[in-house]
């Protein structure tokens, strides 16, 4: 390579280092959202109780919270085995269900005093997006794998209709974060991203050292 081309190559490489690191590191972080959310308790869902005036239910990463003054103050709902990343809350009379994003499910039949853990939804890695109950107590869960209908108070679930197709953006995001191969395949992307960052940094250090010696 002639001198000007080599210089151009080096300086372009140096200039592109920052965006390359940003893209790689953000992919790594998007693929591992818990790294960023550690120590936080984001609100994932708020549902107004259709039976008890002023009562709101709030799904958080840590479990279920309740307000009895229309959102003025919130208190965690005590329970033995709280659902995590609560993505859906459904109310039918005194029966309240709360579902975690992974499909873990609890039910209270006394308006929120005592909570029973139920076997989770059969999602095989899909995520719960929302939960709803009809006036007759019929229970439905909207998930990344489509609609599920609950029977026997949420103890048995069957898929209804077709699963929603992934959008092109979903596919690109999955490719960017490594999730196109599932949770295990994602690890290869994590390793590749970590290696890219390491190579970029060590390459820059080696270049600086070499230039410094000249």
């Amino acid at each position: 390579m002639k001198m000007p081309a080599r210089h151009l190559h080096r300086w372009l490489g140096a200039l592109l280092l920052l965006p390359l690191l940003a893209v790689t590191a953000s992919g790594l972080l998007l693929g591992n959202p818990r790294w960023l959310d550690r120590g936080r308790d984001p609100v994932l869902r708020v549902v107004a109780d259709p039976v008890r005036p002023g009562v709101l239910w709030q799904g958080r990463a840590s479990g279920l919270w309740r307000s009895t003054d229309a959102g003025g103050a919130w208190r965690e709902v005590p329970m033995l085995s709280p659902p995590l990343d609560v993505a859906g809350v459904a109310v039918a009379g005194d029966t309240i269900w709360a579902a975690g994003a992974a499909g873990d499910l609890v039910v209270s039949r006394d308006g929120g005093g005592v909570w029973e853990s139920l076997p989770g939804l059969p999602l095989d890695g899909a995520r719960v997006r929302d939960l709803g109950a009809g006036p007759d107590g019929a229970l439905y869960a909207w998930t990344t794998r489509g609609l599920f209908a609950g029977a026997d108070g949420g103890r048995a679930w069957t898929a209804r209709g077709d699963a929603p197709a992934a959008t092109p953006t979903d596919r690109v995001r999955a490719l960017h974060t490594g999730w196109w191969l599932g949770p295990r395949g994602k690890l290869f992307n994590d390793v590749a991203a970590a290696a890219t960052i390491l190579l970029a940094v060590t390459g820059l250090l080696a270049w600086r050292r070499r230039n410094g010696r000249r």
């Binding site: 949770p183 295990r184 690890l187 994590d190 390793v191 970590a194 290696a195 390491l198 190579l199 060590t202």
Partner: peptide
């Protein structure tokens, strides 16, 4: 050193995915 780091990272991630 780089290869060792990569192998260690892969081993750690495989272990956590078990």
């Amino acid at each position: 050193t780089l290869c060792t780091c990569l192998l260690l990272a892969i081993a750690f991630m495989s272990a956590t995915a078990a």
